[in-house]
Design a protein around this nucleic acid. Structure first.
Lengths: 168, 168
DNA sequence: CTAATCTTTCAATATATTTTGAAAATTCGA
DNA sequence: TCGAATTTTCAAAATATATTGAAAGATTAG
């Protein structure tokens, strides 16, 4: 397969993939494009390559920067901004995990805390089921929270190596 | 907090949560409702409780069944179908992981395999970056695949116990 | 300071997804 | 087998989300 075709396929699949994870197609496509680009790219480069509008490009680059996946680069002597994606996929994964944990898991755990102490007779079946469900979700959530925290801090080799030994 | 309010909040947040994970709001809400319901419920019960149409209810219940999160229950002497959610959250999580792995991770790994052998001079910077990126995504993906497989087969106590030892 | 270049915003538009509800299909008791 | 009860389907409508592009805002070279 030729590079151009492979690149197209990668960008398009990464985009489709993103939509399953609550990330919009364009954001994922820009990310994919920058991931396989050896050099930093400008907004215009990206617009042209993906055939999308200036506004759309701008918004989604910004979002990628918020997620910590892309950084602005200033090339000396150039007026334009260039954009560069983090290429170390372990770091990329940790960054995504970190953000999603902050944006989703942590608020959910807070909510579960509030919901856990519902009033009423604990012998009531409705109440008991509610409390039990909430508390088992919370237990699993806390477990995940801890595990992810360690992963976020970990070095790739240590983490994967140790993990593999344990899970064998 | 009263049970009714707590339930409302749980259902509504679980729905919002779902949308961040590529699951539609209604499907997540029905799941939440069934998770905290001690008894199996009928389609009509669900429609009424969530104020949604018959068609919508039916479609999403079926989708939950496809995901293996809800099962049909026939109560003796009753014509109607009842629906019951798996309450063991460890099993629920394993089931979700299993399905997403099959639907998303595995196809992605297949694609990466195809993309990995792009033609061309490996000294070309474009090609090298492409190949390197693809192969490091693949490496991480395979790692995840293995880990998730172990988790899917694992018993909760063994898995969490091992994790905890590992993470200390 | 000015003008050219570049970036950001956002209302309007386009697209995609979800929901409805009525009709068709199925199921099952009598 | 009939017909009432129940489930399923799916085209149309409603809603939600993403995209455009032109205008406004910001930045910097000269």
């Amino acid at each position: 397969m030729k590079l151009t075709e492979a690149k197209q396929q990668f960008i398009s699949s990464w985009g489709a993939f993103g939509t399953h994870w609550g990330i919009n197609r364009t954001m994922a496509q820009i990310h994919a494009l920058l991931l396989v680009s050896p050099e930093p790219m400008t907004q215009d480069d990206i617009m042209e390559e993906l055939n999308i509008s200036r506004g759309n490009t701008n918004m989604n680059i910004r979002e990628l920067i918020n997620w910590g996946l892309v950084e602005r680069v200033l090339l000396s002597g150039e007026r334009k901004e260039y954009f560069l994606a983090e290429k170390d996929m372990w770091k990329v994964m940790k960054q995504i995990v970190k953000e999603r944990k902050k944006r989703e898991l942590e608020p959910m755990l807070q909510l579960l805390d509030k919901l856990a102490d519902v009033e009423g007779d604990k012998r009531d079946k409705q109440i008991r089921t509610f409390v039990d469900t909430i508390s088992s979700i919370k237990k699993l959530g806390l477990q995940a929270d801890k595990t992810l925290d360690i992963m976020i801090k970990a070095d790739e080799h240590w983490f994967l190596g140790t993990m593999m030994k344990f899970l064998k």
